[in-house]
C-alpha cells in the first residue's frame, strides 16, 4: 500500500515541457501538489528532456529537483534547469532558471484533497546569449530572463487531479537584442528587450494503474497568455506582437515504472495541438520526450 501511495505521489510530478509551457518549471508545478503523499523526507529528481522546435531547432533540457517534506502537509522544492538549443544559428547551451516552490496540502475529506502552491522563478541569464557576437532569438535562450511569481491551487478527487496556476512576471531582466531586420533568418520575430505577459495554466490528469509497477497518467494542459508580448523596435518604441496572446493546449502521457520502493523511472511524451498564432517567446516545441529518475531517501 505504501508503495502504491508512493508511486501515485511521484507520478504527480508532471515533468511535461512542451510547446506552450512558459518554462520547464511552470509546466511541472504539479510536482509539489502531490508530494505530500511521499513517505520519505527527501527526494531528488534527475530529468532529461529532448524536443523539436520551430526552424528545426533541437533541444536538450536536463534538470535537477530537490524536494523536502517538512511535514505531512508542507513540502518545498528547489529546481534548476539547463537548456541547449541547436539549429541554423549554431548550438547554445546555458543554465536557465531556478525555481523555489512551497506546497501546502489540506487533509483529505471524502476522497477530496485540496492543495495550494506558491513559488518563485529566478533566471540565470538575461536572455541575450550570442554566438560570434550575433544576437540569438529567444528560441535559443535558456531563460526568458524574468523573475516570476507562481501561485496555484490543486484539487484531487479519486483518480482525477486538477490544478490551476498563475505565472506572473514581477521583474523583467530580459535584455535580448534579436532583430528580424538584421538577421539572416526569416523564421523568428524581433524580440529586442522582450517583455512577456502572465500565463494562466489549467491541467487535468487521470491516473490509470494496472499493477504496482506501472502507472499511466494521460493529461491535458491548457495555458492562456493573458496579453500580447512586446518588444522594443529599431526606433526604441515598445511594440505589441500581434497574435502572441491566447490559448495553447498540450497533450501529455506519462508512464512510470517503480524500480524499487524509493526509486522511480518515468517517461513522458508531450505535444501541442492548439497553438498561438505567434510564439516569439521561443516556446515552439512541436514535441518533447522526457526521462526522469526519481530517488527518495
Amino acid at each position: 500500500m505504501k508503495q502504491t501511495i508512493y508511486i501515485l505521489s511521484i507520478l504527480g510530478s508532471l515533468s511535461m515541457y512542451s510547446q506552450g509551457c512558459s518554462d520547464a518549471g511552470f509546466c511541472s508545478v504539479g510536482n509539489t501538489f502531490t508530494d505530500e503523499l511521499n513517505t520519505s523526507k527527501n527526494q531528488l529528481d534527475f530529468g532529461g528532456i529532448i524536443g523539436g522546435g520551430e526552424a528545426d531547432i533541437f533541444y536538450i533540457s536536463p534538470y535537477v529537483t530537490y524536494t523536502r517534506n517538512f511535514s505531512e502537509s508542507f513540502t518545498m522544492s528547489a529546481k534548476v534547469t539547463y537548456s541547449q538549443a541547436s539549429g541554423d544559428f549554431g548550438t547554445r547551451g546555458q543554465f536557465g532558471d531556478a525555481f523555489l516552490t512551497g506546497n501546502y496540502t489540506f487533509k483529505e475529506k471524502k476522497d477530496k484533497t485540496w492543495s495550494t502552491l506558491l513559488g518563485f522563478k529566478f533566471p540565470f541569464t538575461s536572455s541575450n546569449a550570442k554566438i560570434n557576437g550575433v544576437s540569438l532569438p529567444l528560441d535559443y535562450q535558456a531563460s526568458l530572463g524574468t523573475f516570476d511569481l507562481i501561485a496555484g491551487v490543486g484539487f484531487k478527487y479519486k483518480k482525477w487531479f486538477f490544478n490551476t496556476a498563475l505565472q506572473l512576471p514581477v521583474f523583467n531582466n530580459n535584455k535580448n537584442s534579436y532583430f528580424d531586420e538584421y538577421s539572416a533568418s526569416n523564421d523568428f520575430s524581433s524580440t529586442n528587450l522582450f517583455e512577456r505577459k502572465p500565463d494562466v495554466l489549467f491541467r487535468t490528469t487521470y491516473t490509470i494503474q494496472n499493477n504496482t509497477k506501472f502507472t499511466f497518467k494521460p493529461n491535458l494542459l491548457f495555458i492562456y497568455r493573458l496579453g500580447e508580448d512586446t518588444y522594443e523596435n529599431l526606433a526604441g518604441n515598445r511594440t505589441s506582437i500581434d497574435g502572441s496572446d491566447g490559448l495553447t493546449i498540450n497533450a501529455n502521457l506519462i508512464t512510470s515504472y517503480a524500480i524499487a520502493k524509493n526509486k522511480i523511472l518515468e517517461a513522458s511524451l508531450a505535444f501541442p495541438f492548439v497553438v498561438k498564432e505567434e510564439r516569439p517567446d521561443g516556446l515552439t516545441r512541436s514535441f518533447t520526450a522526457g526521462l526522469i529518475y526519481k530517488y527518495a531517501f
Binding site: 549554431g90 548550438t91 543554465f95 540565470f124 554566438i131 540569438l136
Partner: peptide
C-alpha cells in the same frame, strides 16, 4: 547530496557555444 551540490555549482559556470550557418565568424 554533497556531491550533487558540488556538481551543480561546477555546472553553474558551464555553458556551451558552437557557431552555425547564420553565425559564422567570417560572415560577421
Amino acid at each position: 547530496v554533497k556531491k550533487g551540490i558540488y556538481l551543480l555549482v561546477a555546472l553553474m559556470f558551464f555553458s556551451c557555444e558552437k557557431e552555425g550557418e547564420f553565425t559564422r565568424q567570417e560572415a560577421q
